[in-house]
């Protein structure tokens, strides 16, 4: 072999042999990552491309006709679909409310759990339980708890002197009930991330801040908060994207009702794709949703990457 004559230790001019070696090495690199690349391509890229393909077709599963190319007409139709617009709006409402409350509550709880009080470690473990439960089960449990006639929430409410509240069947209340359920399930996760971030904050920086003359609230706003920024952004991305995709609670608790007041985007997509079942239209919706998720997460990621320097 020619390569065996390569003198690895020679100094000075690069020899043709070493050029050949570099090429060989690059080829080996590609060969080695090829299997992973193929798997990734198959698992990630193919479904997306296929969804794009379907979204450009008219394809009703309930009818015998094969898929027919429809160009961008599915997208065009979506543009004028009031029900689609409503579902995007409901989704945004849900995300802002649920994730907003989760962030605030989780942040506050993290500070509480960060205090060195007796029993905090046990309490912390217990609070994590909700996030370990399957979302479908959570939805089922809260569906029963919020039930107007025999739910435990109403039972307490009546005991306290109130009249029965139709939590899941009255417009704004229904969405708020789902938000409450989501908050119940996901606040512990948010708390856990913030707690870990707080634990990792360097003690000595706080001492420096005390010597530099910052009061408690100033330390919070000018040291703690900036240092927690990465954690805040990461939790925001994870929770916002997750909330945008979440279907289980609506599926178990309201089925999008009443009158579309809780019809989040995934629910509309689900009913279109599997109930109607209009695959082309649903695929177009999925593609738009993917775009939304991508834009949303890119916004956060860019924030995360920009090393902002505060003065």
């Amino acid at each position: 072999m020619e390569a065996s004559r390569t003198d690895y230790f020679s100094l000075g001019e690069p020899k043709p042999d070493s050029m050949k070696l570099a090429v060989e090495r690059r080829r080996a690199t590609w060969l080695l990552i090829a299997p992973a690349f193929v798997v990734l391509l198959g698992l990630n890229l193919f479904p997306i491309v296929y969804a794009l393909y379907i979204s450009c077709h008219y394809w009703m599963l309930a009818r015998p006709q094969p898929p027919r190319f429809a160009g961008l007409s599915n997208y065009q139709e979506l543009f004028f679909d009031a029900r689609f617009r409503n579902s995007v709006l409901v989704s945004l409402k849900f995300i802002v409310l649920a994730v907003g409350i989760e962030m605030l509550l989780g942040f506050g709880l993290a500070f509480v759990f960060n205090t060195r009080l007796r029993g905090m470690a046990t309490l912390r473990k217990l609070t994590l339980l909700p996030s370990l439960v399957m979302p479908l089960v959570v939805g089922l449990v809260w569906f029963y708890m919020f039930n107007e006639n025999f739910g435990i929430v109403n039972w307490f409410w009546v005991v306290l002197g109130g009249t029965r509240v139709p939590f899941l069947t009255q417009g704004a209340l229904a969405l708020l009930s789902i938000v409450a359920t989501d908050v119940w399930q996901w606040t512990p996760f948010v708390m856990l991330v913030f707690f870990a971030a707080l634990q990792a904050l360097p003690e000595y920086v706080y001492e420096a801040a005390r010597i530099d003359g910052l009061s408690g609230s100033q330390i919070f706003f000018r040291v703690t908060l900036p240092l927690l920024r990465p954690a805040i952004l990461i939790v925001l991305i994870i929770r916002a994207v997750d909330a945008l995709r979440s279907l289980e609670l609506v599926f178990m608790m309201t089925k999008g009702g009443p009158a579309g007041d809780t019809e989040v985007l995934p629910w509309y997509l689900y009913t279109t794709g599997f109930m109607s079942p209009d695959l082309g239209y649903a695929a177009a919706m999925a593609v738009l949703m993917l775009a939304l998720v991508t834009i949303l997460s890119q916004l956060f990621v860019r924030q995360l990457e920009s090393r902002e320097v505060t003065r």
Partner: peptide, 10 residues
């Protein structure tokens, strides 16, 4: 400080 204790975000 021994470990400098600089503000890492600045």
């Amino acid at each position: 400080f021994q470990n400098y204790a600089l503000y890492p975000h600045l």
